[in-house]
Structure formats: structure tokens, C-alpha cells
Write a protein that binds this DNA or RNA. Structure first.
Lengths: 115, 115
DNA sequence: GTGGTCCATCGTAGAGGAACGATGAAGTCG
DNA sequence: CGACTTCATCGTTCCTCTACGATGGACCAC
């Protein structure tokens, strides 16, 4: 069951639609917004996020094929996004399946909207 | 000459509410979002933006008093924000009057929302 | 003019980011 | 088992960011 089937492997379960009650202002919110913004502060990482949103199912190293960067560089960018909480990576056999963390994206929108 | 600059006049006139027709996807949008995100990728700069929004009129070096940073450091952060197009600085006598660029903020919201 | 305030810029030191190739761990297939 | 794939991590180089004090320009009051 593991033959290059795109958008069929559900490694990213439908996240529960739970409201985020944290404030959108204050020192903590500032730090949080700065962290999320820093994660998006590179065009390659913006592209990665877009790719993961477009193929809402998760993919692994197809990202490398879509970017003009070395595999190790892409892996670094993925790590930055993961450390910021924007994406998730689940091991699936020999591959790793990345996907968006929808609540982090919502949180980012809330913080930017709160400006 | 410009002798009509009175103290009570906000140096930031109500910007025209002109819609931004540029796309929220594509390579250019990626670069743009990365640039704006990088400008917000530091807590001090997030705080500066909030200060300028709160006092919707413009202020100058009161920002320095609100931050635990040296004047030169704050000036550098202001330059980063200005270069990114997020704020504007108008010289008003011996002071400089900073204020938000509302259309840049709207653009940022559109780009983040377009994710 | 002199003196004082406000602010940008310079110079510098240290920390962190971005890129790559090389290496190796973990897993799959024959 | 052995060969191959996939990906993270290491080590390196170069460049940018962040912070500060010091310097100097522009402006106002006197």
C-alpha cells in the first residue's frame, strides 16, 4: 500500500477545531508572533508551507524536487518550520510525511489580525 | 516653505483606502511575505509596531523609552521596519515622526490570510 | 553665534542563519 | 544478507542580525 499514491495517505488526521483562547497581545504574544514570523522569513519556507497546504495530504521529499535547493538545505528549512510549530513530520516507513499544523496557521492569522 | 506643520497635526494623514490588487500567491508574493515576516521576526519590532498602532498618531523617540534597548538599537529596528515598508518616518523639526503604513499592514494580513 | 536635544549612522564584537557536500541511521526490497 | 532509498545531522564557509557606545548632523531656543 505504499506506492506513490498522493493525497491518499492520511498521516495528518483532521485536527480538531478547538478555539485558541490565548491573547493576541502582550509580551508572550509578541514573542510568539516573532517566532512564527521568523519561521516564514525566508522565501523557501514560505514555498514549503504553500506546498504543504496545496497538497493538503502530506508529502515527504517531493518538496526537495520542487525547490532549487540541496536536500540538506531543505531538511534544515523543514526543521525550522517544525521547531516553530508550523508543520509536523511523521515517520512513515523510510519516508517522512510532513504536513501543516492547522492550529498554528490559525494562530498566526489571529496574531497578525490582532495587529 | 513648509511652515504649516503644527504640533497637533498628525503627520500620518488618513491613507487612501485603495485596494491592493496584487496576487497573494506566486513567487513575488512569496518574496513579499518573507520580507514582511522578516521585519516582524524580532520581538522588539513587534512591540514597535504595536506601539505605533496604539498611539495611532505618530511618535518619535518615545519608543526608545518604552523599550529596554539603546537608542541606536531602536533606530536600527526602525530602519528595518521602514525598509520593509511597514512604517514611515517623517522629519518634524528636530524629531522624526514614525507611523504605521496601513496598506502594508493590510497587505500582510492578505498574504497571511492567503495561506 | 553657543548650547542642548533628537536622531541616524559608523564601527565592532558576538551570535545565528543559509548554503553545500559528506556521512550515517532507519527502513524496504530482492 | 546485501543493495538501495530516504532523510537527518555534521562540519564548514560565508553572510546577516543584534547589540552597544561613540560620533556627528540637523534643528530649536536663547
Amino acid at each position: 500500500m505504499k506506492s506513490t499514491a498522493q493525497a491518499s495517505e492520511p498521516c495528518c488526521p483532521p485536527a480538531k477545531e478547538q478555539a485558541d483562547l490565548r491573547p493576541v497581545e502582550g509580551d508572550e504574544a509578541d514573542e510568539e508572533l516573532a517566532t512564527l514570523a521568523k519561521a516564514l522569513a525566508h522565501p523557501a519556507r514560505v514555498k514549503i508551507v504553500r506546498i504543504l497546504i496545496r497538497k493538503n495530504a502530506c508529502i515527504c521529499g517531493d518538496i526537495v524536487d520542487e525547490l532549487p535547493l540541496a536536500q540538506s538545505t531543505v531538511s534544515q528549512h523543514l526543521k525550522v518550520l517544525k521547531d516553530a510549530g508550523l508543520i509536523r513530520g511523521d515517520v512513515d516507513g523510510p519516508r517522512v510525511c510532513y504536513c501543516i499544523e492547522p492550529h498554528a496557521l490559525r494562530r498566526l492569522r489571529a496574531l497578525v489580525g490582532g495587529l
